[in-house]
Simulated scan of single mutants.
Amino acid sequence: MQHWTGLEAVPAGFGPAVVTIGNFDGVHRGHCAVLRQLVGEAERRDAAAVAITFDPHPRQVHQPDQAPPLIMGLEDRTELIAECGVDALLTLHYTLDFAQATAQEFVESVIVDALGACTVVIGHDVRFGCGNHGDFQTMVELGRRYGFDVVGIDDVGSGRRWSSTWIRESLAAGDVATAAEVLGRPHRMRGEVVHGAARGRELGFPTANLAPTADGIIPADGVYAGWLVDEAGTRWPAAISVGSNPTFEGVGRQVEAHVIDRPDEPVEDFDLYGQRVGVEFVERLRPMVAYRGVDALIEQMNDDVAQARAVLRPRGSGGESTGETAPAARTE
């Protein structure tokens, strides 16, 4: 997939294209349905399938104090849009000046002049242009004027419409299973592994600590079964802790993943520090609570690992953990 980060990067004379527009935060199952229809329409018309998105999110520009947290960063959003089969992604830098363009100016400069659209695929609730004055009917009328068709897409979902709002609500409640159902995959954070207080190592449970600047929504405090995905794409079964670790004072809120069932022998050339890794949340095991003493905490952590192992064990594995063949990692 080609990724253009501005109109100036689009090749001259590009087109014909079938185009869709959206923030695509989360690239959830509803987004994927739209992108699949985009790709199918492009194939039928022998055209390129192009998605248009914005960075930062428009709400972060217009209402920074009220903007919702982003489900994922641009890196993951781009990767997942590419997996849907889209030919090109145009990411437009969203600013207050950019937002002054009228609906007609946006369509003329971006959809017509830059992308040579023959078709636009959008939801019936679409809004675009200055003040969000452009809607679905506006796009139809502009299509007649500029010579492109408009294909409308209905909401999709199972009972409730699949949406980024639903995902955020689920993650805030620690319900990562529902979030995964709407996303079509486990929720993922992505960030650099940094040094922490090394308490996990001292207790016998070394952890990979995500930097505070990691992309993606942090779920509710608690312990989760999930995966750590390193830069090479290796997936490591993990017990993931989210919170301030109330057993110890003075610890800020953090996300740390303990890779389970690592071989005893060290692998000297494998080190997660400084790597930009993904942490995926599969199931919440328990809330975060304070324990009276280190011994009680260690007992609970052993139980957490056993539960995580059971959750992540592949079906038909005969009781063997998915982590038993994973390489070892040196983390805190």
Rank of each mutant, 00 (worst) to 15 (best):
Asp65Cys: 00
Gln66Ser: 13
Gln66Cys: 11
Ala67Arg: 11
Pro68Tyr: 01
Pro69Thr: 02
Pro69Val: 00
Pro69Ser: 00
Ile71Gly: 05
Ile71Val: 15
Met72Tyr: 05
Met72Pro: 06
Met72Phe: 05
Met72Gly: 04
Gly73His: 00
Gly73Tyr: 01
Gly73Glu: 05
Leu74Glu: 15
Leu74Ser: 09
Leu74Pro: 01
Leu74Ile: 15
Glu75Tyr: 15
Glu75Gly: 15
Asp76Ala: 04
Asp76Gly: 03
Asp76Lys: 00
Arg77Leu: 11
Arg77Asp: 06
Arg77Thr: 08
Arg77His: 07
Thr78Ala: 11
Thr78Val: 13
Thr78Gln: 03
Glu79Leu: 15
Glu79Met: 13
Ile81Thr: 07
Ile81Pro: 05
Ala82Cys: 09
Ala82Asn: 07
Glu83Arg: 08
Glu83Lys: 00
Cys84Lys: 08
Cys84Asp: 11
Gly85Asn: 10
Gly85Met: 14
Val86Ile: 12
Val86Pro: 09
Val86Gln: 12
Val86Lys: 05
Val86Phe: 12
Asp87Phe: 02
Asp87Leu: 01
Leu89Glu: 07
Leu89Arg: 02
Leu89Trp: 06
Leu89Ala: 02
Leu89Pro: 04
Leu90Cys: 11
Leu90Tyr: 13
Leu90Ala: 06
Leu90Gly: 09
Leu92Gln: 11
Leu92Lys: 09
His93Tyr: 15
His93Asn: 15
Tyr94Arg: 03
Tyr94Met: 09
Tyr94His: 05
Thr95Leu: 12
Thr95Glu: 11
Thr95Gly: 06
Thr95Gln: 11
Leu96His: 01
Leu96Asp: 03
Asp97Glu: 15
Phe98Met: 10
Ala99Trp: 04
Gln100Tyr: 07
Ala101Ile: 09
Ala101Val: 10
Ala101Thr: 11
Ala101Glu: 13
Ala101Cys: 08
Thr102Asp: 05
Ala103Ser: 06
Ala103Pro: 03
Ala103Gln: 00
Gln104Phe: 07
Phe106Lys: 02
Phe106Val: 07
Val107Pro: 02
Val107Tyr: 01
Val107Asn: 00
Glu108Ser: 15
Glu108Tyr: 12
Ser109Cys: 01
Ile111Asp: 12
Ile111Tyr: 14
Ile111Ala: 14
Val112Pro: 03
Val112Asp: 00
Asp113Asn: 06
Asp113Ser: 08
Leu115Cys: 05
Leu115Ala: 04
Gly116Ala: 04
Ala117His: 07
Ala117Val: 11
Cys118Leu: 08
Cys118Ser: 14
Cys118Phe: 09
Cys118Tyr: 07
Thr119Lys: 03
Val120Phe: 09
Val120Met: 13
Val121Tyr: 05
Val121Ile: 06
Gly123Asn: 08
Gly123Tyr: 09
Gly123Cys: 10
Gly123Arg: 09
His124Tyr: 10
Asp125Thr: 10
Asp125Gly: 12
Val126Arg: 07
Val126Phe: 13
Val126Glu: 03
Val126Asn: 04
Arg127Lys: 10
Arg127Gly: 04
Phe128Met: 01
Gly129Ile: 03
Gly129Trp: 01
Gly129Leu: 00
